[in-house]
Design a protein around this nucleic acid. Structure first.
Lengths: 139, 139
DNA sequence: CCTATGTCAGTCGGACTGATATGT
DNA sequence: CACATATCAGTCGGACTGACATAG
Protein backbone atom coordinates (compact mmCIF):
# COMPACT_ATOMS: atom_id res chain seq x y z
CA UNK A 1 0.00 0.00 0.00
CA UNK A 2 2.72 2.48 0.97
CA UNK A 3 4.54 1.52 -2.16
CA UNK A 4 1.54 2.24 -4.37
CA UNK A 5 0.93 5.59 -2.70
CA UNK A 6 4.55 6.53 -3.24
CA UNK A 7 4.46 5.54 -6.85
CA UNK A 8 1.24 7.41 -7.45
CA UNK A 9 2.63 10.53 -5.86
CA UNK A 10 5.76 10.33 -7.93
CA UNK A 11 3.85 9.87 -11.19
CA UNK A 12 1.51 12.68 -10.28
CA UNK A 13 4.29 15.08 -9.37
CA UNK A 14 6.03 14.33 -12.60
CA UNK A 15 2.97 15.05 -14.68
CA UNK A 16 2.13 18.16 -12.75
CA UNK A 17 5.62 19.63 -12.83
CA UNK A 18 5.79 19.01 -16.58
CA UNK A 19 2.47 20.76 -17.01
CA UNK A 20 3.50 23.69 -14.82
CA UNK A 21 6.94 24.08 -16.30
CA UNK A 22 5.92 26.36 -19.20
CA UNK A 23 4.42 28.72 -16.64
CA UNK A 24 7.68 28.73 -14.68
CA UNK A 25 6.06 27.46 -11.51
CA UNK A 26 7.04 24.56 -9.28
CA UNK A 27 4.48 22.36 -7.56
CA UNK A 28 5.28 23.88 -4.19
CA UNK A 29 4.70 27.35 -5.61
CA UNK A 30 1.39 26.34 -7.14
CA UNK A 31 0.29 24.84 -3.83
CA UNK A 32 1.26 27.97 -1.91
CA UNK A 33 -0.51 30.15 -4.45
CA UNK A 34 -3.69 28.12 -3.93
CA UNK A 35 -3.48 28.52 -0.18
CA UNK A 36 -2.99 32.27 -0.51
CA UNK A 37 -6.10 32.48 -2.65
CA UNK A 38 -8.17 30.43 -0.23
CA UNK A 39 -7.15 32.68 2.66
CA UNK A 40 -5.75 36.01 1.61
CA UNK A 41 -3.48 37.94 3.94
CA UNK A 42 -1.85 35.11 5.88
CA UNK A 43 1.60 35.48 7.37
CA UNK A 44 4.45 33.20 6.38
CA UNK A 45 4.13 31.28 9.63
CA UNK A 46 0.42 30.75 9.08
CA UNK A 47 0.98 29.56 5.52
CA UNK A 48 3.59 27.12 6.76
CA UNK A 49 1.25 25.67 9.36
CA UNK A 50 -1.55 25.26 6.86
CA UNK A 51 0.58 23.26 4.51
CA UNK A 52 2.38 21.40 7.28
CA UNK A 53 5.85 22.49 6.26
CA UNK A 54 8.36 24.53 8.23
CA UNK A 55 8.37 28.33 7.95
CA UNK A 56 11.93 28.08 6.67
CA UNK A 57 10.72 26.02 3.75
CA UNK A 58 7.73 28.21 3.10
CA UNK A 59 9.79 31.36 3.00
CA UNK A 60 11.70 30.11 -0.01
CA UNK A 61 8.53 29.25 -1.85
CA UNK A 62 6.97 32.64 -1.14
CA UNK A 63 10.16 34.43 -2.11
CA UNK A 64 9.98 32.75 -5.51
CA UNK A 65 6.40 33.87 -5.98
CA UNK A 66 7.27 37.39 -4.93
CA UNK A 67 10.15 37.51 -7.42
CA UNK A 68 7.73 36.55 -10.18
CA UNK A 69 5.29 39.26 -9.11
CA UNK A 70 2.51 36.80 -8.31
CA UNK A 71 2.13 37.80 -4.67
CA UNK A 72 2.90 40.85 -2.58
CA UNK A 73 3.90 40.97 1.05
CA UNK A 74 2.91 43.97 3.12
CA UNK A 75 3.71 44.60 6.76
CA UNK A 76 0.75 44.27 9.10
CA UNK A 77 -0.01 47.81 10.42
CA UNK A 78 -0.82 46.39 13.85
CA UNK A 79 2.21 44.15 14.08
CA UNK A 80 5.56 45.42 12.91
CA UNK A 81 7.12 42.07 12.14
CA UNK A 82 4.36 40.15 10.37
CA UNK A 83 4.20 40.26 6.57
CA UNK A 84 0.78 39.53 5.09
CA UNK A 85 0.81 37.79 1.73
CA UNK A 86 -1.73 38.61 -0.98
CA UNK A 87 -2.28 37.61 -4.61
CA UNK A 88 -1.57 40.12 -7.36
CA UNK A 89 -3.70 40.37 -10.50
CA UNK A 90 -1.12 38.38 -12.41
CA UNK A 91 -1.01 35.86 -9.60
CA UNK A 92 -4.72 35.28 -9.94
CA UNK A 93 -4.44 34.90 -13.67
CA UNK A 94 -1.53 32.44 -13.52
CA UNK A 95 -3.26 30.46 -10.81
CA UNK A 96 -6.31 29.99 -13.00
CA UNK A 97 -4.19 28.63 -15.79
CA UNK A 98 -2.56 26.23 -13.33
CA UNK A 99 -5.95 25.04 -12.20
CA UNK A 100 -6.90 24.15 -15.75
CA UNK A 101 -3.67 22.20 -16.23
CA UNK A 102 -4.08 20.39 -12.96
CA UNK A 103 -7.60 19.39 -13.88
CA UNK A 104 -6.37 17.75 -17.05
CA UNK A 105 -3.82 15.68 -15.16
CA UNK A 106 -6.37 14.68 -12.54
CA UNK A 107 -8.86 13.72 -15.19
CA UNK A 108 -6.31 11.35 -16.70
CA UNK A 109 -5.53 9.92 -13.30
CA UNK A 110 -9.17 9.30 -12.45
CA UNK A 111 -10.24 8.14 -15.89
CA UNK A 112 -11.20 4.66 -14.70
CA UNK A 113 -13.26 5.89 -11.79
CA UNK A 114 -16.84 7.13 -11.85
CA UNK A 115 -17.94 10.15 -9.83
CA UNK A 116 -19.15 8.36 -6.67
CA UNK A 117 -15.94 6.34 -6.59
CA UNK A 118 -13.90 9.50 -6.85
CA UNK A 119 -15.45 11.16 -3.84
CA UNK A 120 -15.20 7.95 -1.87
CA UNK A 121 -11.52 7.71 -2.78
CA UNK A 122 -10.97 11.26 -1.63
CA UNK A 123 -12.70 10.52 1.67
CA UNK A 124 -10.58 7.43 2.21
CA UNK A 125 -7.39 9.33 1.47
CA UNK A 126 -8.34 11.96 3.99
CA UNK A 127 -9.00 9.25 6.54
CA UNK A 128 -5.48 7.94 5.91
CA UNK A 129 -4.02 11.39 6.43
CA UNK A 130 -5.90 11.66 9.73
CA UNK A 131 -4.64 8.23 10.74
CA UNK A 132 -1.09 9.47 10.33
CA UNK A 133 -1.81 12.49 12.49
CA UNK A 134 -1.46 15.02 9.69
CA UNK A 135 -5.11 15.91 9.57
CA UNK A 136 -6.84 18.87 8.03
CA UNK A 137 -7.71 20.78 11.15
CA UNK A 138 -4.76 23.07 11.78
CA UNK A 139 -4.92 26.82 11.56
CA UNK B 1 -7.23 15.44 -4.82
CA UNK B 2 -3.61 15.90 -5.92
CA UNK B 3 -3.05 17.95 -2.83
CA UNK B 4 -4.37 15.22 -0.54
CA UNK B 5 -2.29 12.57 -2.24
CA UNK B 6 0.80 14.72 -1.83
CA UNK B 7 0.10 15.35 1.80
CA UNK B 8 -0.54 11.69 2.47
CA UNK B 9 2.68 10.70 0.78
CA UNK B 10 4.62 13.26 2.76
CA UNK B 11 3.16 12.16 6.09
CA UNK B 12 3.74 8.54 5.21
CA UNK B 13 7.33 9.08 4.15
CA UNK B 14 8.01 10.96 7.31
CA UNK B 15 6.63 8.21 9.51
CA UNK B 16 8.39 5.50 7.56
CA UNK B 17 11.76 7.19 7.51
CA UNK B 18 11.54 7.79 11.25
CA UNK B 19 10.72 4.12 11.79
CA UNK B 20 13.53 2.97 9.50
CA UNK B 21 16.12 5.36 10.84
CA UNK B 22 17.28 3.14 13.76
CA UNK B 23 18.01 0.43 11.20
CA UNK B 24 20.06 2.86 9.14
CA UNK B 25 17.93 2.41 6.05
CA UNK B 26 16.29 5.01 3.83
CA UNK B 27 12.91 4.45 2.22
CA UNK B 28 14.48 4.01 -1.20
CA UNK B 29 16.78 1.35 0.21
CA UNK B 30 13.91 -0.48 1.85
CA UNK B 31 11.96 -0.41 -1.39
CA UNK B 32 14.89 -1.72 -3.37
CA UNK B 33 15.48 -4.45 -0.81
CA UNK B 34 11.86 -5.56 -1.18
CA UNK B 35 12.17 -5.72 -4.94
CA UNK B 36 15.33 -7.78 -4.69
CA UNK B 37 13.55 -10.25 -2.45
CA UNK B 38 10.57 -10.52 -4.76
CA UNK B 39 12.86 -11.27 -7.69
CA UNK B 40 16.33 -12.35 -6.76
CA UNK B 41 19.18 -11.93 -9.18
CA UNK B 42 18.03 -8.89 -11.12
CA UNK B 43 20.50 -6.53 -12.74
CA UNK B 44 20.66 -2.86 -11.82
CA UNK B 45 18.91 -1.93 -15.05
CA UNK B 46 16.11 -4.38 -14.34
CA UNK B 47 15.68 -3.10 -10.80
CA UNK B 48 15.47 0.43 -12.12
CA UNK B 49 12.78 -0.47 -14.63
CA UNK B 50 10.72 -2.27 -12.02
CA UNK B 51 10.67 0.71 -9.71
CA UNK B 52 10.34 3.24 -12.54
CA UNK B 53 13.45 5.17 -11.66
CA UNK B 54 16.57 5.70 -13.75
CA UNK B 55 19.46 3.24 -13.50
CA UNK B 56 21.64 6.14 -12.34
CA UNK B 57 19.38 6.61 -9.36
CA UNK B 58 19.12 2.94 -8.62
CA UNK B 59 22.85 2.43 -8.62
CA UNK B 60 23.24 4.77 -5.68
CA UNK B 61 20.58 2.96 -3.71
CA UNK B 62 22.11 -0.44 -4.40
CA UNK B 63 25.59 0.84 -3.57
CA UNK B 64 24.31 1.85 -0.14
CA UNK B 65 22.84 -1.58 0.44
CA UNK B 66 26.04 -3.23 -0.69
CA UNK B 67 28.09 -1.07 1.69
CA UNK B 68 25.87 -2.24 4.54
CA UNK B 69 26.32 -5.86 3.53
CA UNK B 70 22.62 -6.40 2.86
CA UNK B 71 23.01 -7.40 -0.77
CA UNK B 72 25.76 -8.84 -2.92
CA UNK B 73 26.38 -8.22 -6.58
CA UNK B 74 27.96 -10.96 -8.64
CA UNK B 75 28.84 -10.85 -12.32
CA UNK B 76 26.61 -12.94 -14.52
CA UNK B 77 28.74 -15.82 -15.85
CA UNK B 78 27.04 -15.59 -19.24
CA UNK B 79 27.28 -11.85 -19.52
CA UNK B 80 30.45 -10.10 -18.50
CA UNK B 81 28.97 -6.73 -17.71
CA UNK B 82 25.75 -7.55 -15.85
CA UNK B 83 25.85 -7.67 -12.06
CA UNK B 84 23.12 -9.76 -10.48
CA UNK B 85 21.93 -8.53 -7.11
CA UNK B 86 21.00 -10.94 -4.32
CA UNK B 87 20.00 -10.65 -0.67
CA UNK B 88 22.47 -11.70 2.02
CA UNK B 89 21.37 -13.42 5.22
CA UNK B 90 21.60 -10.12 7.07
CA UNK B 91 19.68 -8.44 4.30
CA UNK B 92 16.83 -10.89 4.77
CA UNK B 93 16.85 -10.35 8.49
CA UNK B 94 16.87 -6.55 8.27
CA UNK B 95 14.15 -6.64 5.64
CA UNK B 96 11.89 -8.61 7.95
CA UNK B 97 12.31 -6.06 10.67
CA UNK B 98 11.48 -3.31 8.21
CA UNK B 99 8.33 -5.14 7.19
CA UNK B 100 7.15 -5.21 10.79
CA UNK B 101 7.80 -1.49 11.19
CA UNK B 102 6.05 -0.67 7.95
CA UNK B 103 3.03 -2.68 9.01
CA UNK B 104 2.70 -0.63 12.15
CA UNK B 105 2.72 2.61 10.20
CA UNK B 106 0.23 1.27 7.69
CA UNK B 107 -2.04 0.06 10.43
CA UNK B 108 -2.13 3.55 11.91
CA UNK B 109 -2.82 5.02 8.51
CA UNK B 110 -5.69 2.63 7.77
CA UNK B 111 -7.15 2.62 11.28
CA UNK B 112 -10.44 4.14 10.19
CA UNK B 113 -10.95 1.74 7.31
CA UNK B 114 -12.31 -1.80 7.48
CA UNK B 115 -10.81 -4.62 5.44
CA UNK B 116 -13.05 -4.42 2.37
CA UNK B 117 -12.52 -0.68 2.24
CA UNK B 118 -8.79 -1.18 2.36
CA UNK B 119 -8.64 -3.49 -0.61
CA UNK B 120 -10.98 -1.24 -2.53
CA UNK B 121 -8.74 1.72 -1.77
CA UNK B 122 -5.72 -0.18 -3.00
CA UNK B 123 -7.54 -1.06 -6.23
CA UNK B 124 -8.52 2.55 -6.78
CA UNK B 125 -4.98 3.75 -6.18
CA UNK B 126 -3.68 1.27 -8.72
CA UNK B 127 -6.28 2.51 -11.19
CA UNK B 128 -4.95 6.03 -10.66
CA UNK B 129 -1.41 4.89 -11.30
CA UNK B 130 -2.53 3.24 -14.52
CA UNK B 131 -4.35 6.40 -15.51
CA UNK B 132 -1.10 8.31 -15.28
CA UNK B 133 0.66 5.76 -17.44
CA UNK B 134 2.92 4.44 -14.69
CA UNK B 135 1.20 1.07 -14.49
CA UNK B 136 2.39 -2.14 -12.95
CA UNK B 137 3.13 -4.06 -16.06
CA UNK B 138 6.75 -3.39 -16.89
CA UNK B 139 9.56 -5.90 -16.62
C1' DC C 1 11.63 36.40 30.22
C1' DC C 2 9.10 33.82 27.08
C1' DT C 3 6.95 33.21 22.76
C1' DA C 4 6.11 33.91 17.89
C1' DT C 5 7.82 35.59 13.57
C1' DG C 6 11.02 36.26 9.74
C1' DT C 7 15.04 34.79 7.70
C1' DC C 8 19.95 33.12 6.55
C1' DA C 9 22.76 29.12 5.97
C1' DG C 10 23.67 24.48 5.56
C1' DT C 11 22.21 19.59 4.83
C1' DC C 12 19.72 15.65 3.22
C1' DG C 13 17.16 12.05 0.52
C1' DG C 14 15.81 11.08 -3.80
C1' DA C 15 15.17 11.86 -8.25
C1' DC C 16 17.00 13.80 -12.77
C1' DT C 17 20.17 14.72 -17.13
C1' DG C 18 24.70 14.31 -19.35
C1' DA C 19 28.68 11.81 -20.48
C1' DT C 20 31.52 7.70 -20.81
C1' DA C 21 33.21 2.99 -20.89
C1' DT C 22 32.29 -1.57 -21.97
C1' DG C 23 30.12 -5.86 -23.24
C1' DT C 24 26.63 -8.69 -26.92
C1' DC D 1 27.27 -0.22 -35.75
C1' DA D 2 23.48 -0.37 -32.64
C1' DC D 3 22.09 -1.38 -28.15
C1' DA D 4 22.08 -2.39 -23.25
C1' DT D 5 24.46 -2.06 -19.06
C1' DA D 6 27.21 0.08 -15.39
C1' DT D 7 28.65 4.10 -13.45
C1' DC D 8 30.64 8.90 -12.54
C1' DA D 9 29.51 13.71 -12.00
C1' DG D 10 26.59 17.41 -11.58
C1' DT D 11 21.98 19.48 -10.71
C1' DC D 12 17.41 20.22 -8.96
C1' DG D 13 13.08 20.64 -6.14
C1' DG D 14 11.60 20.32 -1.77
C1' DA D 15 11.91 19.39 2.63
C1' DC D 16 14.72 19.58 7.11
C1' DT D 17 17.60 21.40 11.38
C1' DG D 18 20.34 25.08 13.47
C1' DA D 19 21.06 29.78 14.55
C1' DC D 20 19.70 34.46 15.23
C1' DA D 21 17.38 38.94 15.33
C1' DT D 22 13.27 41.20 16.46
C1' DA D 23 8.45 42.22 17.89
C1' DG D 24 4.76 41.61 21.46
Amino acid sequence: MSYVIGRLDRALRRRLSDALEPLGLTIAQYTALSIVRSADGLSNAQLARRTLITPQSMIKVIAGLEDKGLVTRAPDPDHGRVLRTALTARGTEVLERCDALEEQVEEAMLAELADPQRSRLLDDLKACVRGLGAGFGGE
